[in-house]
Amino acid sequence: MRSVLRATVNIAAWALSISAGAAFASDACEKPVYLTFDTGHMAIAPLVAEVLNRQQVKVTFFGANERTQTGDGSLGKDWAPWWKARAAEGHAFASHTFDHVYWRGDVKAAQKGDPVRFKMRSSAGPDEGREQVWSAEQYCAEIGRSEKRLQDMTGQPPLPLFRAPGGKTSPQLLAAAKSCGYAHVGWAPAGFLGDELPSEAYPNAALLQKALRDIRSGDILLAHLGIWSRKDPWAPAVLEPLIVGLKERGFCFATLREHPAYSAWIKAHPVVAVTPVKTK
């Protein structure tokens, strides 16, 4: 299935990503953490980029084409220069499904041997809010749509990874994605940085204190490029103090290329070039 979604192997890009990982490994500290960002309304995206650049921290971005405060969607042409700049800085990218599609449940097979199907609901795009029933092939294609768009904007093949919106999955959904070449990435309990929570009940100071107290070596951390419902933005208020505080505690930052749970998968599923997708 993955070969259908993608085109020819890009050996040069693959070699570059592997060499970048090797370079990191030679300088790696003993307490790595893996900061990841899912897309959002993008209003804080420039500030996030400034902090990451200033602190020389590399992260992994999971992209979906979500509604934005300005521009034509987080993976639209208006935001393409922002993504290209992040690629030049050495960050990594992976799919978050194109229309930010939530898994809602597995469909019970009418009889033994029926193909697996899933209840899905998009929170963006032309089918926003509408529940649909998808095959495994349709879900793989949806992951691939985001992957293709990220390749088009960044000029580099994304990682063979994905994150389901909300982290909502089932064993059958994960098996379907793996069958077409994608491993799922969740996050550590302490790595939920809380930027989705209401700021009235979860102020930034409390979120920062909790993260600095609870994060452990090897944790995957989750934040977003803007949450509509949070009144007191999490970034950059928490982001830079969190990075500085973790560094002071001996932690370092890496992309998921170096994560021990995914590095073997990435090497076994070489990054490849995909056919560019034009933005409407």
Rank of each mutant, 00 (worst) to 15 (best):
V4L: 02
R6V: 08
R6K: 06
R6D: 03
A7P: 02
A7I: 15
N10G: 04
N10P: 02
I11Y: 12
A12Y: 03
W14M: 03
W14I: 01
A15Q: 07
A15G: 11
L16G: 08
S17Q: 14
S17W: 06
I18M: 11
A20P: 04
K31W: 10
V33M: 06
V33W: 00
L35G: 07
L35W: 08
G40P: 07
G40R: 13
H41A: 02
A43W: 03
E50I: 10
E50A: 14
N53G: 12
V57E: 01
V57I: 10
K58M: 10
K58E: 05
V59E: 02
A64G: 08
A64M: 09
A64Q: 04
E66G: 01
T70H: 10
G71M: 14
S74C: 07
W79E: 04
A80G: 05
P81A: 08
W82K: 00
W83M: 10
K84S: 14
F93I: 06
A94R: 03
A94D: 10
H96Q: 07
H96K: 04
H100S: 06
R104P: 00
G105H: 04
G105M: 05
Q111N: 06
D114P: 01
S123H: 13
S123D: 13
A124Q: 08
A124P: 00
G125Q: 00
W134P: 02
A141R: 04
A141P: 00
E142N: 04
I143L: 15
G144S: 13
G144H: 11
G144I: 14
D152K: 09
M153T: 04
M153K: 09
M153V: 03
Q156T: 13
P160A: 12
L161R: 05
A164Q: 07
P165Q: 09
G166L: 14
P171V: 07
Q172G: 06
A177C: 12
S179R: 06
C180G: 05
V185W: 13
D195Q: 07
L197F: 12
A201V: 08
A201I: 00
A206I: 01
L207A: 00
Q209H: 02
L212R: 07
I215M: 02
G218D: 12
L221P: 06
L225E: 09
L225M: 14
G226E: 06
R230Y: 03
R230V: 11
A235H: 14
A235Q: 12
A235R: 02
A237I: 12
L239N: 04
E240L: 07
I243C: 08
I243D: 04
G245S: 09
L246N: 03
L246Q: 13
R249N: 11
G250S: 08
T255Q: 03
T255C: 04
L256I: 08
E258C: 10
H259G: 03
H259M: 12
Y262M: 07
Y262A: 11
S263E: 03
A264Y: 08
A264Q: 14
W265E: 15
K267F: 05
K267I: 07
K267V: 05
A268G: 13
V271S: 08
V271M: 11
V272F: 00
V274H: 13
V277F: 09
V277Y: 07
K280Y: 10
